[in-house]
Design a protein around this nucleic acid. Structure first.
Lengths: 339, 339
DNA sequence: TCCATACCCGAAATCGTTTTCGGTATTCGT
DNA sequence: ACGAATACCGAAAACGATTTCGGGTATGGA
């Protein structure tokens, strides 16, 4: 059960290690005959080059790192999917790490990836991350870096995002266009940029269309999940606000709200129209099916790796690379929860 | 922007590479003074050992591979979560690859992981995989292997599963206990073992409780998703079968069926009770909330890595390791779709 | 004074591959 | 038949860390 190495093959064939190596890589200074013999023997012994040795020499690991807040999340798992697909096609492996929305862990994970000498890193920031020194450190080490979804303007690197503000604007506009005049918003926590942006998009749409922005109609869903949606909706009803539209920051929160409305015999969309955000598969399964904003996770993953790949290639060939920011299109998916 | 190596530190301090290496690893034949100096310098220069060089010597990569059919799947992403958490705590990194339910790809991915010299492999088989030579090959190379969820009895390795048959039995029994007498089953494709097992569990429960098994009440949901659930339910209604219970192979299929029932003004659970399987977050968000079987993905992930870790340790210490099979508990979650 | 015993340190081999650089042997042109 | 071009091969030096095996110095005891 010995490892099979170049040396092994060389001895079997009575030639040098050098020649074996070159034969396998189709160097032109090896005769056809030797090449054939080497390749045959390599196949026979089931030779696979020792990746460590190769990496040690070439300084390339053909491995990239990915850090996301959490894996169990429809959006992020779509992103992962896109990244893995694209990476694999280009001969790269993906190491996935979670930050669990923790700044400290995020730092640790980055160090881990660096110590593993990954060829590049893709990251979506944790909500609690405010400092970005650890990210700039990646750049300092000249390691290609791409940020997606949750990014920071303070890090000069390639980015792939959606325009949260514009998307939220469209979503709100869709509610207004369908006749809503008093629209509540369930927003996320105060810090995360996308939470802020979606709120701002909502606000701007309200103001642009001659409606009044009422801070009382803004409720915070800390974890943007189903239960948060329920609580917010209950509070909204208890507060006695009469609304005819709701824009929730996620589909889960929207689903929670809809269920509370049902419990109070409030018809959706007849009395209240509801918009979600993300287009998780959940949104088509609930009743009424949820109108929402499609957030292209798979595309984002693909695009992120593409940019990273470009940068890694540039680095290898010692070319200059200028970071680019790619804004992906979102689109309104109209289902039954809006008119 | 030079890489900082042991050599670098050695030169700066005017000592040998050997001593630096030993100082960093707290060998006892290095004086306290030198150790301190070395560590200080290492920290100052931000030294991280070159993983490739280390691996090349030690033959350990501290990396494990994970192959699953698809990432975008609530169950599998839970498993991933469990694995990553546990792996990280033990200093291991996880490389995730998808088989996309394809046998060919699965083989390719395994070769990839082997060539990367991962310390161990965890896998949930693709539906289309029938041959298991590629899996036994892993064993032949003496690489620790753990199979979970979708396993093969033909591979002698550790396994983590749930008892699909028993779980399906309980689910069906739950329907029977709540008064159902004519229960349909939406099953998965014919090949996958879990599809077979759940069907058998359903059948046995029917027969054990004095009901008659009617093959006409079995419908196949090839992709076990929402749309499949809808189609099957539509066909069921068109076929004119009068049923009072339905056990669907997944929550998604159950959700699809429920929506079709709603469209036909069939009350759930008053006229038809519905059981799903898996307890995805979807199941609490639909109306009526779905009764289902909780499938402990996170636990399965944790347990899988645990077993792998045990086997890797045994290998390192050259101890014997006997494969074990761990069957995880499932439990019935009663919500509103059953009485 | 001499030897034994700690106590520190370093030279060198090793892991498996890549790549440079030079050395034969063969072929070709004239 | 002779010099030059061509084809083919291999020795050896990397890459960066780990580890074995000794060797040197100081200290202690006799």
């Amino acid at each position: 059960m010995k490892e099979v190495t170049l040396k092994q093959i060389a001895e079997n064939l009575g030639i040098s290690i050098t020649t074996v190596s070159k034969a396998l890589k189709d160097y032109k200074d090896v005769s056809k005959a030797t090449k054939a013999a080497v390749k045959a023997e390599a196949k026979r012994l089931n030779f696979t080059p020792n990746a460590f040795a190769v990496n040690l020499r070439t300084k390339e690991s053909k491995t990239v790192g990915l850090i996301i807040p959490e894996v169990v999340h429809h959006f992020f798992s779509s992103v992962i999917n896109g990244i893995i697909d694209k990476a694999e096609k280009n001969g790269y492996l993906v190491i996935i790490l979670q930050s669990n929305e923790s700044y400290e862990l995020e730092k640790k994970q980055i160090d881990l990836l660096i110590s593993k000498r990954v060829d590049g890193i893709m990251i979506s920031m944790a909500n609690t991350t405010v400092e970005v020194d650890h990210l700039n450190h990646i750049r300092d080490l000249n390691i290609p870096l791409v940020m997606f979804d949750k990014i920071s303007k303070l890090v000069p690197c390639s980015k792939v995002v959606i325009n949260d503000r514009a998307a939220a604007y469209s979503a709100t506009k869709h509610l207004i266009d369908s006749g809503c005049r008093r629209i509540a918003h369930f927003r996320g926590a105060l810090l995360p940029q996308n939470s802020i942006d979606r709120f701002l998009g909502y606000k701007k749409a309200i103001e642009d269309h001659g409606l009044v922005f009422d801070p009382e109609l803004i409720y915070i869903c800390e974890n943007v999940d189903y239960d948060d949606g329920r609580s917010a909706a209950q509070k909204l009803i208890k507060d006695g606000h009469k609304i005819d539209g709701l824009f929730a920051i996620t589909d889960m929160a929207a689903a929670g709200a809809i269920n509370v409305f049902k419990e109070h015999n409030i018809a959706v969309p007849q009395e209240i129209s509801v918009m979600g955000f993300s287009n998780w598969f959940l949104s088509q399964a609930i009743t009424p099916a949820l109108s929402t904003v499609d957030q292209p996770g798979y595309e984002m993953g693909k695009k992120s790796f593409k940019l990273l790949h470009k940068e890694m290639r540039a680095k290898r060939e010692d070319r200059e690379f200028l970071p680019v920011t790619k804004v992906l299109e979102t689109k309104i998916i109209k289902r039954e929860s809006t008119n």
